[in-house]
Write a protein that binds this DNA or RNA. Structure first.
Lengths: 157, 157
DNA sequence: CCCAAGTGGTTGACGTGTCATCTATGAAAT
DNA sequence: ATTTCATAGATGACACGTCAACCACTTGGG
């Protein structure tokens, strides 16, 4: 009995949807990364961090808040900020109210970088992802994503 | 003018769908990787390579075919196979008809590994991804993924 | 036959993500 | 106050992915 016909496997429709989805997701990520890198010397991760900072009026956020917003492991964020700091995209600042904590601050270079990157990035997202999608498809996508996120959260080990 | 209200940005609905989707996709990948690693000492990438091998009746495939099927860069595949080979999951074999080429072969250990990994992995996919999805949602997903893949292929640099 | 261009695959350098472990501080209970 | 537990963050080791360059072989003209 092959993997394909094993009852524990997915049915034909699911199988097909799953493979398409996985392939799409992997390739889209790769493409977005390449586009950002080529046009703005930023990775998708850099971009997401910078968005968190620009979203906040003070351009200054506690690390754990960024980690929470992006759902990143704290060590991932820590490593990533070291690299971003070396490139001058962000800076650090002590937190007066909690001596353990650290603020991460958007530098002028960081601000310039994301302002230049955003339009092209958004355009790529629109062109590759949303182009030709109906309103209904978009809302189905959001609904599905939310449901899956809920299940992920519910099963948290 | 903030990034949010910039006309070059996405509209509210798209914005929300995009953020949900990106978050879902990132977290789902992380979870699938962790589940596979914990239960079977395999990464999602290992799994995908092994599927390519088990899908083929001879359990022996040319590298470039795997690269094509998974849409991996050849160097990625090469690096990955070195690691998988070290762990005994696959072996290599010369190609008589093309002296440059190499076959990659499923070892008994590799076969055992994927056979033990598959049921749990599939179960996780079903539980986290498909659970509660309607037939229509599944087919919308497949349609959307296909359309995006097409756009990705069309824009190939 | 030969040479140019293409293809299959490898390699090294480097950026990225995870895991486990660690330090330092804060908070809560005794 | 002291112990205990939780939280914020850093660090080192390691797996992973990309890019660019490379080697070896094949192919397709001249």
């Amino acid at each position: 009995m092959t993997l394909m016909t094993d009852p524990r496997w997915l049915d034909e429709t699911q199988q097909r949807a799953w493979r398409k989805y996985m392939s799409m997701q992997a390739q889209l990520n790769a493409r977005l990364n390449r586009q950002l890198q080529a046009d703005s010397k930023l990775s998708l991760s850099d971009f997401e961090v910078l968005v968190q900072l620009t979203d906040n009026p003070s351009h200054k956020v506690r690390m754990f808040e960024v980690a929470q917003a992006l759902q990143w492991e704290k060590s991932r964020l820590s490593h990533h900020l070291v690299r971003m700091q070396k490139r001058g995209l962000v800076a650090r600042e002590e937190c007066p109210s909690d001596a353990r904590g650290a603020f991460i601050v958007l530098t002028p270079e960081g601000r310039t970088a994301i302002e230049e990157a955003a339009p092209q990035h958004v355009d790529t997202v629109r062109r590759l992802f949303f182009e030709g999608m109906t309103e209904e498809q978009i809302s189905t996508l959001a609904t599905m994503s939310e449901a899956i996120l809920k299940r992920l959260a519910a099963e948290e080990d």
